[in-house]
Design a binder for these strands. Structure first.
Length: 222
DNA sequence: AGTTGATCATCT
DNA sequence: AGATGATCAACT
């Protein structure tokens, strides 16, 4: 892995240097084998970019660039220039919610500063031939944070009231709650409708594609 | 079992 | 075509 960037500017510069290159070239430089597809290597693109940018976190629950407080997110882009997938942010807490507020929530800290790196994601482009786009260093605007907060509070209210299993991905304007698990047998504890503990699928917060599309679009217009 | 990285497969 | 619910792998 390359050395960790010491400043925001250094990180951004390095990310800009990757723009226009293909994943095949980047894999060659990193001495990493390109898999045939992402079926069994869903996190491969993210890990390849982590290597090139010198991210330090690995699979630990801390920011990718701890010293800079920056989170790295790659985002697959279609031929129309829009995201092909929602973006996973973090796991949603389902128990021990006393005193939890938006201000001290895990998700607010995760989204405080994000380096977005668009990558061609259409499945008919061979993985090695997909190109990296221009990076965007983003922090939520006041309006964006308000929308995130509204969604988060709505979803957390339902969880606290024991309605987690009534939540679908349609709830929330820009933030959604969906299963995030190895498989349907990996269960975790949550509140039931009568306050009793139940076992349910772990959930994650995801950003809806129309929202991430907005972000990237705003950038390309500037 | 939980974290990280997400995409896959299917339904509407 | 796009969104939803389900799933994969590595690592702690």
């Amino acid at each position: 892995m390359r050395p960790t960037p010491q400043t925001e500017l250094e990180l951004l510069g390095r990310a800009r240097d990757l723009a226009g290159l293909s994943l095949g070239e980047l894999a060659l430089q990193a001495d990493i084998v390109t898999p045939p597809d992402l079926k069994r290597d869903k996190g491969w693109v993210g890990q390849l970019l982590e290597w090139h940018l010198g991210a330090t976190a690995g699979s630990r629950p801390i920011p990718d660039f701890v010293e800079l407080g920056i989170e790295l997110k790659t985002i697959p882009i279609g031929y129309n220039g829009k995201p092909l997938e929602t973006t996973f942010v973090c796991v949603a807490p389902l128990i021990g919610l006393q005193g939890l507020s938006w201000e001290n929530s895990h998700i607010r800290h995760k989204l405080a500063k994000v380096l977005w790196i668009p990558v061609e994601g259409e499945r008919d482009i061979p993985l090695a031939d997909r190109h990296v786009g221009s990076p965007l260093l983003w922090s939520p605007s006041a309006d964006e944070e308000q929308r995130l907060r509204r969604d988060w509070e709505e979803l957390m209210d339902m969880i606290v009231l024991g309605h987690v299993e009534q939540i679908t991905a349609r709830h929330g304007e820009i933030l959604q709650l969906r299963p995030k698990a190895a498989n349907s047998k990996a269960l975790t504890e949550a509140y039931g409708a009568n306050g009793q503990p139940i076992k349910t699928l772990p959930r994650g917060f995801y950003l809806k594609t129309h929202f991430t599309a907005e972000l990237l679009e705003r950038y390309f217009i500037l």
